[in-house]
Design a protein around this nucleic acid. Structure first.
Length: 425
RNA sequence: GUGGCCGUAGCUCAAUUGGUUAGAGCGUCGGACUGUGGCUCCGAAGGCUGAGGGUUCAAGUCCCUUCGGUCACCCCA
């Protein structure tokens, strides 16, 4: 075959898809408990939405977007993240008139043109929440706790919560000046990459892994020391809420996230089991985004988490993720004359809510039993001329090997009782 | 976009210093006396050795290019 899944993409085969379904269902369930409601936005949007929302200078906008021109001449981009589209929908549908705050969650694929690596793909699946219309620090804490609780509920035990504050437009700009003053005097001691960062986005200086740069920057001014009164009070309150909730966290002043829209609270949940891309999820507050997109002001906060990375962390720590294929009954057609009767029995079994399978390849009885065994069937139901003539159906317990004849008409209900009322195994 | 490693049947891997029809295990399908699984045994199907060039009498084995995978950087979920 000449075709393969495009670079950086992959097929989620049944075994993995079942695990993803489990994780996603668990997420939807806990998101709802926290009062969030589902929303689906288009998988592509006007390029300008992301360019303005995420920031022209960011890596995402500069080199990672899947952009194309549609037949109407519009510049379209496959969504690289979920927040900007939701803020767009919030404005478009007047959600500021809904009971505030508006709490939404989403699940879906995102696209970024990057070199694939462990835990990073060109199409990846995110789960996320957004709460718009309030700048209450309690909401910041709620969102952070929701992320942690969800991860914990599906089996992630060891994870680190990093938090910081990016300040608001006012205090951040004065901080950036201070940082640039500091860096300008030491520019000769920094690596070429950092020299470039200095020009493009000084906040990124802290991302450098170069030890020499790290030493130089250790003495640099920190954003959290430059917060204005409002931002400082907000940050203190977020920490206070987390503390009351018994949530452990680490303040990381260098936690600078790659999207320009963040203000005040930013956070990231990391796992030591993921390799270089160690963030399971992250997010922050974006109080200026709605205005940046040309809408009415609307503060907001949210997070996104990558299901691929979550699944990796869960499997590394807890071994298995639930979500197995289970077969209740395999209907065995004893010979060709009864294949239609077998088919009808399977239909009636399914009508009782039982997972029923049968043979579609004309296999021998032995072959059918082998298949039933491979599929893990709990029961086999024999349909044969002799049983049919007597109005019976022979049931075989595939675990114990016991067999019994029951009236054909009552077989589905009889089996349903056995399957649903008796403990598995 | 940059760099390291890698690319043989569906999967995991073999294939003497380049040498003749590329093998095995698992899996799939079938069979082992007539209506019954899990163990065992037998058989079959399934590879243009990622692709394209080159070197050579001869290439899965060497060289180049390209595509893909993988890991790291940049950055992020």
């Amino acid at each position: 075959m000449r075709f393969k899944a495009p670079k950086g993409t992959y097929d989620v085969l049944p075994e993995k898809a079942e695990k993803w379904e489990f994780l996603e269902e668990a997420a939807r369930s806990i998101f709802k408990i926290y009062g969030y409601r589902p929303i689906e936005t288009p998988i592509f949007e006007a390029t300008e939405l992301f360019a303005r929302g995420i920031g022209e200078a960011t890596d995402i906008v500069q080199k990672e977007m899947y952009t194309f021109t549609d037949k109407g001449g519009r510049s379209i981009t496959l969504r690289p993240e979920g927040t900007a589209p939701i803020v767009r929908a919030h404005e478009e549908h007047g959600m500021s008139q809904w009971p505030q705050p508006v709490k939404l969650y989403y699940a879906g694929s995102m696209f970024r043109y990057e070199r694939p690596q462990a835990g990073r793909y060109r199409q990846f699946y995110q789960l996320g929440v957004e709460a718009l219309g309030s700048n209450d620090p309690a909401l910041d804490a709620e969102v952070i706790i929701l992320l942690l609780e969800y991860c914990r509920s599906v089996g992630v035990k060891e994870m680190d919560l990093l938090i910081s504050s990016m300040g608001c437009s006012e205090c951040r700009s004065s901080y950036i000046e201070a940082l640039k003053d500091f860096a300008r005097e030491r520019i000769s001691k920094l690596c070429p990459d950092c020299a470039r960062r200095f020009e493009v986005n000084p906040l990124r200086l802290f991302d450098c892994k170069n030890p020499a740069c790290g030493e130089v920057l250790a003495g640099a001014p920190k954003m959290i020391d430059y917060l204005c009164d409002g931002c400082r009070v907000h940050f203190e309150s977020v920490k206070g809420h987390l503390g009351k909730a018994g949530v452990g966290y680490k303040i990381d002043p260098t936690l600078v996230r790659g999207l320009d829209y963040y203000t005040r609270t930013t956070f990231e949940v990391q796992s030591g089991y993921l390799g270089a891309q160690n963030a399971i999820g992250g997010g922050g507050r974006y109080d200026g985004l709605a205005e940046e997109l040309g809408g009415a002001p609307a503060p907001g906060i949210g997070f996104a988490l990558g299901i691929e990375r979550l699944a990796m962390a869960v499997e590394a720590e807890s071994g298995k993720i639930p979500g197995e294929y289970e077969l209740d009954v395999f209907v065995v057609a004893v010979d060709d004359s009864v294949r239609v009767d077998a088919f009808m029995l399977a239909q009636r079994l399914r009508g009782e809510g039982l997972v029923a399978e049968m043979d579609y390849l004309g296999r021998s009885i032995k072959g059918q039993l082998k298949l039933a065994d491979k599929l893990g069937a709990r029961f086999a139901a024999f349909v044969g001329p002799e049983e049919l003539a007597a109005g019976l159906c022979r049931l075989k317990n595939m675990v114990t090997g016991e067999q019994e004849d029951v009236p054909l008409g009552g077989a589905p209900a009889y089996l349903a009782d056995k399957v649903f009322e008796e403990p598995v195994k």
